[in-house]
Design a binder for these strands. Structure first.
Length: 271
DNA sequence: CTTGTAACCTGTCTGC
DNA sequence: TGCAGACAGGTTACAA
């Protein structure tokens, strides 16, 4: 489930386990995920103390007192298991803290990544260089978005998934935001009226904030030792709800495919 | 520069 | 029960 709110939830959860702790054991279980895991990861992190955790877009950052920061991305299927009873096939990185807590980065599809960069150079970490502003930050507002979309003819749905325009949205929250703002997913980005852009920016911030808020209650399940997810509260208005009633107008939610990915929307509210 | 498509992987669910 | 096909929260390489 890793879009911005899920990564934020994950980072907050990991903070409780890792902050201030020594990394007593750092054990990569394979050489690569999406890309190679740094060969010196174990050597550089073992014995280091975690000084802080943070998030940038969909990346989680774990900084240490040795001047290194580990940066992870959960891809499509990644999650951290906390105090797992045993280590399985898809646990690609295992960490044990000085207090004896156990963490396992589990990612069946291996679309995620693990990098290690000098903390002082984090801003120059290649994948960060092209990222747009944080959607919850002050740099993301209607004037910015208007400028970023100017002249673009692609569907707004696809443009919002472009991390260079705004960093952290994924398929779920793009669908949800467009529904809340009443914008058709196929609308060319550059042809959205300024008033609608105001609504869109507001919707994005609102949806993400609400999801993070709910993430607090999700964390227990998300990071449960037994790895079971279960009991997911789906507060989605349209995502994954094809054929069900639009919560606003009761028309059936529609699904279409854009860029190879499902788009859920209401034909009436987002006409 | 923009745009569109395929590819990377494994697991799960549906329908025959 | 088996099996094929569709689909899944993301990113990136490449062609046009």
């Amino acid at each position: 489930m890793p879009e911005l709110p899920e990564v934020e939830t994950t980072v907050r959860g990991l903070t409780g386990v890792l902050e201030g702790e020594v990394l007593a054991r750092v054990e990569p279980r394979r050489a690569d995920l999406r890309r190679a895991i740094p060969v010196d990861l174990r050597q550089r992190l073992t014995g280091a103390r975690v000084t802080g955790l943070s998030r940038r877009a969909k990346y989680g950052l774990i900084a240490t007192d040795r001047g290194d920061t580990m940066i992870f991305h959960l891809g499509m299927s990644g999650r951290w298991r906390v105090d797992p009873e045993d280590i399985g096939t898809h646990d690609h990185l295992v960490i044990e803290t000085g207090s004896g807590r156990l963490l396992a980065l589990n990612d069946p599809r291996r679309f995620g990544s693990i990098d290690l960069v000098e903390t002082a150079l984090v801003e120059r970490f290649a994948p960060f260089m092209a990222l747009g502003p944080e959607p919850l930050g002050e740099g993301f507002d209607a004037p910015y978005l208007a400028a970023a979309l100017e002249g673009r003819v692609s569907a707004i749905k696809l443009l919002l998934l472009d991390q260079r325009i705004v960093a952290g949205l994924g398929n779920i929250y793009v669908c949800e935001s467009l529904h809340m703002a009443g914008i058709a997913p196929t609308k060319p980005g550059g042809r959205i009226a300024r008033k609608r852009l105001d609504l869109l920016v507001e919707a994005i911030k609102e949806v993400l904030a609400a999801a993070i808020e709910a993430g607090g209650s999700t964390l227990r399940d998300y990071a449960r030792p037994d790895g079971q997810l279960g009991y997911f509260f789906k507060q989605w208005r349209v995502y994954g709800r094809e054929g069900l009633e639009c919560p606003v107008c009761a028309q059936p939610v529609l699904r279409r495919v854009d860029g190879g990915r499902s788009t859920f929307y209401c034909g009436k509210c987002q006409g």
